[in-house]
């Protein structure tokens, strides 16, 4: 069975060929059917361009994109069986919610009664049954988001693209929507591809994800792989927070002369631990404390769970960790 989306050496360069801006640079990517796939990265890393390459609003300057095995290089957006939930939702302001949702069916020529029935069905799925006659302007942010979702899903796309789908929502609503999206995706079995700059969102929702940096994929894998075994300093730093250890420090801790990553929550107070130095700051986190110490000129952070005895600032302490917590990175 072919993959839902496949990138083969895809590039999207802008500007003159002599000095191109490489928004996406020679990306290889395979998204399996039925996956909940996240594209994570800082702004300008190329993740949104990748999404637009799938929907067809950008065309690759090199390489090939396949959707369910079919080359889409000659297919415009409106003929791709792929739908998008836009970042600002892009609801049609002059149509009511029902017409917005039924729009995709209308332009494909479905009779009015049938498309309205389907639209209502889809609105029920996103808990907006009673809102069909409202205009988008009369809805809250969360409701608009769900209309955008219903409007895309009613077309039964083979791939649903979501561009920062939760970015405009407040924290509580965002967490509720995360669960809702996840369960919706399981129920419908449609491949979801979503773009986000929020690592928590990517880690908690996706079943596999790609981390983008400067137009390239820095690492691709499951959330657990990305978190525990970051391949590069960029990934270790961008996904979660991490102590990045230069080769000399790694070596002094018993590892090879390579960069390593040490997650703060893996460190604990240990009188015989290998990391020693004075405490420079203590910060209360609610679920614990964050302690900073200076080990031979390097700042090291540790997160101690609530209830642990806290050292005084300025005192010398030692920290230890389980051997497997020290993650060695291959990157030079």
């Amino acid at each position: 069975m072919p993959a839902a989306v496949e990138f083969r050496a895809v590039s999207r360069h802008f500007g003159p060929a002599s000095a191109p801006v490489k928004a996406v640079d020679a990306v290889d990517l395979t998204i399996a059917e039925g996956a909940f796939f996240a594209m994570l990265g800082p702004s300008g890393s190329g993740k949104t361009t990748c999404l637009r390459l799938i929907s067809g609003f950008e065309s690759p300057t090199a390489g090939e994109i396949r959707i369910f095995g079919q080359d889409v290089s000659a297919t415009p957006p409106h003929l791709r069986n792929v739908n998008t939930v836009f970042q600002d939702y892009a609801l049609f302001p002059h149509m009511n919610v029902r017409d917005n949702v039924a729009y995709g069916l209308m332009v494909k020529g479905m009779p009015r009664a049938k498309r309205y029935a389907k639209a209502e069905e889809m609105l029920a799925l996103v808990h907006l049954d009673a809102y069909g006659s409202r205009k988008p302007g009369q809805l809250s942010g969360g409701q608009r988001q769900r209309v955008a979702l219903a409007r895309a899903l009613v077309n039964e796309p083979r791939v649903l693209l979501l561009d920062e789908p939760l970015g405009a929502l407040d924290l509580k609503l965002r967490e509720a929507m995360q669960d809702e999206l996840k369960s919706l995706q399981k129920r419908l079995g449609i491949t979801f591809v979503f773009v986000t700059h929020d690592q928590h969102e990517a880690l908690s929702m996706a079943d596999s994800l790609a981390v983008f940096n400067q137009g390239k994929i820095a690492q691709i894998g499951t959330p657990a792989e990305i978190y525990t075994q970051p391949k590069t300093r960029f990934v270790a730093d961008f996904v979660g927070s991490s102590n990045l250890l230069p080769p000399t420090l790694t070596q002094s801790l018993g590892g090879p002369a390579k960069w390593a990553s040490l997650r703060p929550e893996t460190l604990r107070l240990d009188a015989n631990g290998p990391i020693a130095g004075p405490v420079t700051a203590i910060r209360y986190l609610g679920a614990g404390h964050r302690i900073s110490l200076n080990a031979h000129g390097h700042d090291i952070a540790a997160i101690l769970p609530a209830g642990s005895a806290l050292p005084e600032p300025g005192t010398e302490i030692r920290l230890g960790f389980a051997p497997e917590a020290l993650h060695i990175m291959d990157e030079a």
Binding site: P76, H78, N83, T84, F86, D88, F92, Y103, G104
Partner: peptide, 21 residues
């Protein structure tokens, strides 16, 4: 917002349908 024109194409409308609707 250019978004609604793209949204229309994304939902399957051709250029003329987008213009009209």
């Amino acid at each position: 917002s250019g978004g609604i024109l793209e949204a229309s194409a994304d939902l399957g409308a051709n250029a003329f349908q987008t213009f009209w609707h």
